[in-house]
Design a protein around this nucleic acid. Structure first.
Length: 329
DNA sequence: CCAGATACCCGCCACT
DNA sequence: TTAGTGGCGGGTATCT
């Protein structure tokens, strides 16, 4: 069981406080569904989510909805957590409470993962945990983060950054992507994809995507490529070229790449590679197929190609991923 | 891991 | 005039 502590500070942004509960809670439901599908008894939940405050037991959420949050847990939740999520708070430009900083440093020191949403990155930065690391935050505040903490390598162009131990996300909805990423790395791509479906989240939003995309014509642009992308998802195992994709979208190759850049924020091939890596992950998790077979079944032309992309996006080689995944579950 | 071949991506620009 | 399209060139990423 993975303990997730959501560390709430005064003036926390309500939406972001709720994100971990929604994603990890949904992962619990997806896991239970998986248990019964396999004919076995429903196992215990995978995640234990504890909304907590350090210093105060009740934190108000005075803006944007004017509600009040009761935090059932205190510092002991942070001390017990495997993952500490830090949502953004209203007064993020002020020095955080020293108890909060101490709790974060202690958690990091004993190896817990720390994940920030939005301007929560400022809190973790104040604890000195981001020095020398790559990080991101809400695009309105990336410059300020870089100015205050020159030792941090701030990347304003991505949805989230995973440093292994510390994760930072761009803000608001990208916190969903980051938490889903944590589910994927903890429990596997198959469960993560079922969780995404329950959350009605697109599967393919990934860390390396533009934070914001201009939408000159939101009505048309948000949906025009959706059928093409679904088609790519279904046919990712086939050798797809730009020509074929463009034909499917009934436009030229030039227009296709242009639309991808402006509306999706990435390129057709980059998206396809992500889809294929995801397939490969699932095959490695759930089958005994050789790495070479996995490469072909997931749409990569060769084992070398799979290894190249897999290692780049997952961080470990396919074979290593399979063995570590099996021992972890 | 290297190298040659190929595919892709995107600025530029003419065109509808 | 503005908005969108798509061919072309060639630097770069990817494949074999």
């Amino acid at each position: 069981m993975t303990v997730v502590a959501v560390l709430v500070q005064e003036g926390a942004i309500g939406f972001e406080v709720m994100i971990p509960g929604q994603v990890f809670g949904m992962a619990n439901m997806a896991a239970a569904e998986g248990d019964s599908d396999r004919g076995g008894a429903v196992g215990s939940p995978r995640y234990d989510i504890r909304v907590c405050a350090v210093g105060r037991s009740v934190t108000t959420l005075p803006v944007w909805g004017a509600t009040e949050l009761r935090t059932p847990f205190g510092p002991e939740a942070v001390a017990a957590a495997d993952i500490v999520v830090v949502p953004g708070a209203e007064k993020f430009l002020e020095e955080p409470d020293s108890e909060v900083l101490d709790a974060l440093r202690a958690a990091a020191a004993r190896g817990a993962r720390i994940a920030t949403v939005c301007v929560g990155a400022f809190t973790v930065a104040a604890a000195g945990l981001l020095d020398g690391k790559r990080a991101t935050t809400h695009w309105q505040w990336t410059d300020e983060l870089a100015r205050r903490y020159p030792a941090i390598d701030v990347d304003p162009t991505v949805l989230f950054v995973d440093n292994g131990q510390i994760l930072t996300s761009a803000g608001m909805a990208s916190g969903l992507d980051m938490c889903l990423h944590l589910v994927r790395s903890g429990l596997g791509a198959e469960l993560a994809s079922r969780t995404a479906r329950r959350l009605v989240l697109p599967l393919w939003r990934d860390g390396g995507q533009a934070q914001y995309i201009e939408h000159p014509d939101p009505v048309d642009s948000t949906h025009s490529l959706a059928p093409t992308i679904e088609w790519m998802e279904r046919n990712a195992a086939e050798p797809l070229g730009l020509e074929a994709i463009a034909a499917r979208a009934s436009m030229s190759v030039r227009s296709l790449t242009r639309h991808f850049r402006t509306h999706v924020g990435t390129t057709p091939l980059a998206l396809l590679v992500r889809m294929r890596v995801d397939r490969a992950r699932r095959l490695l998790e759930s089958t005994e197929l050789s790495v070479d077979r996995v490469a072909r079944e997931s749409g990569f032309g060769s084992e070398a190609s799979l290894r190249y992309h897999f290692t780049r996006s997952v961080g470990v080689a396919p074979q290593k991923y399979r063995s570590s995944y099996l021992t972890a579950s």
